[in-house]
Simulated scan of single mutants.
Amino acid sequence: MRTRYGFQIVAMWETKSGDRTEFAYLLEWPDEAAKTSGWAAFMADAEWAEIKRATHAEHGLMVGQIEDLLLAPVDYSPSSSLLR
């Protein structure tokens, strides 16, 4: 993901609720166009599609809904000076 599509992982989290585990990734992009093209290329990647298919066949559905949000810092955030 990093070398092929420019994904810069800033942080990752997981939450567990019963049998359900969710992962959240915070990615850094130089701009929105890079994010859009990087994700589109990744989602169209034949190798990734095969890995996802094989994993699903062996372990069941592991990747459900992907939620794509663009976060913009606000001036009143305690860490806003770090994000500009």
Rank of each mutant, 00 (worst) to 15 (best):
56 H>I: 03
66 I>N: 05
27 L>N: 02
12 M>A: 12
62 M>P: 02
40 A>C: 05
75 D>W: 06
55 T>F: 04
11 A>V: 08
10 V>D: 12
50 E>L: 06
45 D>Q: 09
23 F>W: 13
44 A>K: 04
25 Y>A: 05
52 K>D: 08
78 P>G: 08
26 L>H: 08
43 M>L: 14
56 H>N: 12
11 A>F: 10
44 A>M: 02
79 S>H: 13
28 E>Q: 14
70 L>M: 13
36 T>D: 10
84 R>P: 00
64 G>D: 09
55 T>C: 10
52 K>M: 09
43 M>V: 04
52 K>T: 07
11 A>D: 14
69 L>E: 09
21 T>I: 14
3 T>A: 15
40 A>F: 07
19 D>Y: 04
27 L>V: 01
39 W>Q: 11
58 E>N: 14
5 Y>D: 01
72 A>Y: 12
65 Q>N: 13
51 I>N: 13
84 R>W: 01
25 Y>N: 04
27 L>M: 03
20 R>S: 12
22 E>F: 10
22 E>N: 13
56 H>E: 13
42 F>T: 00
49 A>S: 11
19 D>V: 01
83 L>Q: 12
14 E>M: 07
49 A>H: 07
63 V>Q: 12
71 L>M: 13
75 D>S: 10
11 A>S: 14
47 E>S: 08
41 A>R: 11
28 E>G: 12
74 V>E: 09
52 K>P: 00
30 P>E: 15
42 F>I: 00
24 A>G: 03
59 H>Y: 15
52 K>A: 10
17 S>W: 09
59 H>S: 13
34 A>E: 03
48 W>A: 03
56 H>C: 11
76 Y>K: 03
33 A>W: 03
23 F>D: 14
68 D>F: 12
56 H>P: 00
70 L>T: 14
32 E>V: 06
11 A>R: 14
